[in-house]
Each structure stands twice: as C-alpha cells, then as structure tokens.
Design a protein around this nucleic acid. Structure first.
Lengths: 157, 157
DNA sequence: AAAAATAACGTATATTTATACAATAAATAA
DNA sequence: TTATTTATTGTATAAATATACGTTATTTTT
C-alpha cells in the first residue's frame, strides 16, 4: 500500500520508454517488475499522473506523459524551482542540467549560491544549465555533493 | 458522404472551443450543427485527426488537438528562424552555432525539439548557441545528423 | 490509546471507445 | 458503359476504461 509513489515513478518510466496501448499491457509490465495491481488502480494512477492517450500509427492509441507535467505552472505550485529540474548528464568536464523552460537562470543562481568547490562556474540558458567542473572532479563526485547539498533533487537525478 | 472533410474541420473547432469529455457529447453538438453521425464514425474521425484525450480536473478527461498540430515546430517549416543561422564550428565537445542577433534562443529551442541522441544539451545566448555533444560523438557525426534532420541548413553549414 | 478522518485498493459493473463485418457510394480502370 | 477498386459509414459487439461501493490500512485528532 505504500508502493504507490514508487509505482507512479515506474509507470512514468514505462510509458516514456515503451508504446503502451492499454492498461492491461501496462499491468503485465508492472507485474514483471513486482508491482501487482488491478486495472482499476492503473486507471486511477494514470489519472493522477495526468497521462494522456494519443493516436499512434502503429499501435492505434498509446499513453503519453501529459503536457501539464512538462508545464512550468503546475510544477511551480509546489515550492522551489528545483522541482523544475529534469535531468542531469555529463560530457567531458561539463555537467548539463536540463530544466523546464525559463527555470535555468534561477536554478543556476541557486547553484552558484552553494559555492561548491567542485564547480568553477555555471552558464544558464533558458532551460539548460552548463556547470563547468574543476579539473580533477569526477562526474560522480559532483553528483554526490550536489545531492548532499540539495536533497530535494534525490528523486530526480 | 462528402461531409467528412467539412465535419473534420467542425470537430476541430468544437474541441478547441469546448471541453468535450465523450464522443456522445461531441455527437450531440455535431447533430445540432446538422452533422448527424454515429459514435463509431466519431471514433474514426478522432483517430484520423489525431485528437488525444487528456485528464482534466473538472470533467475527468477531455479531448484535445494533438501536439503535432499545435506544435510550432511542425508549422514553422515555412518561414523558419533557421535562416538566421550563420556558422557552425567546433571546440572540444562543444559545437558553436553563430546566428543573427536575438535568434539564438528560438533556434536552440528548435534544436532541443529534435531530441538528438548526439546532444546532451544546448545553451543559447543572444546570437550564439553552445551545443554540448555526448562523449564519443565526433564533430562530423553531429554535423551529418544535424543536416539530415534539418535539410534547410545544407546551404549554410 | 481510542476514535475519526483520510488514503489506497479490489471487485463488480457502468460507461466509453474501437473495430469486425456488411452495405453503399464514389472513383478509377477496362 | 460496365467492372473493379477504394472510401465512408452504420450496426452490432468487443475491448478498454472509469467508477460506485465496500474493505483495509494509514494518518490525524482527541
């Protein structure tokens, strides 16, 4: 019964990675991952997650993450701009943080405020932040410190 | 039987102007406008029009015109900001795209919309875009994919 | 701690949507 | 023109989805 939050996350992932055409399909995928629930529960989950169904040339209709999830305004209700963080990835000595549109500058400001030793500087566009890592700092080192300093990000990165 | 095209247009308008929660609702609205069809036909119409159904706090689920129709990128083919691209160069794992002043953000947005595997993220200033390439992606690889995805750029880069 | 309120869920079922099949109209080929 | 193919639709029904209701767990209040 306390699985719900975790299940929701898994559902989102399944939907993003696969073309799911029905709740039964989703149900059996979840089942294989150890989440055994009924169709009714999935119907409720999908409504709670604001998942929508869109036509697909191959599979008829498939589930897709709703715009509203991507929409800044619904997220802003929460609290901090950190909720607008979407993804952390790396390339060379850069960390790249993807955010919801328009949030990058405020989040970058917040990062700057941390004055992390691991970071030389940040540049923010509209929805992307480049974090320049100090020479010798590994991706994992940066990630670990970041999550320690900003625990709100733990569910996201 | 020759009503179909016209009916499709009317359906789009109804969906844009109202919160339609079921095909029956749509059916009766259409009926009042002189288009009398069965639910089955509407099911087919909505699929043909790529209309999707999204959750709504008040009415449960409502129909909505698909992203592809609303999405700027698909419409923008005509008079595209890509014409404001001036130059593509590289440095390390960064691609640098020079644009006419003020165009960088909109072009970066367009790049983001491509969701290229080769790209980790982009940051746009006023007339310059930094594209962070995924580790292991060569300059040529990126250029080739870019030109394949955006043939309009062929004359430029 | 007990009581009350809230949240999560399954079962059974109602509602909604998609489709197999057959019929008819329109377009195309012969 | 006649035959053939392709499109569009309705009917009937299958498939998918949402929900009323009852139950159990969890949280909150007293």
């Amino acid at each position: 019964m306390k699985d719900r939050k975790q299940r929701h996350i898994v559902i989102c992932e399944i939907i993003k990675d696969n073309k799911i055409a029905s709740q039964m399909e989703l149900q059996s995928m979840l089942d294989e991952l150890g989440y055994t629930v009924t169709q009714a529960t999935l119907s409720r989950d999908l409504a709670a997650l604001k998942v929508m169904k869109r036509p697909d040339p191959i599979k008829g209709h498939i589930y897709a993450i709703s715009d509203e999830v991507t929409n800044p305004f619904t997220v802003m209700n929460d609290n901090s701009p950190l909720n607008a963080c979407r993804q952390l990835s790396f390339a060379g000595n850069l960390a790249v943080i993807k955010c919801l549109p328009s949030f990058a500058p405020s989040i970058a400001l917040l990062l700057d405020g941390l004055e992390m030793d691991e970071v030389i500087g940040t540049v923010a566009g509209d929805d992307t932040i480049l974090v320049v890592l100090r020479d010798g700092i590994s991706h994992e080192q940066f990630r670990r410190t970041l999550l320690r300093r900003l625990p709100e990000l733990r569910r996201r990165f």
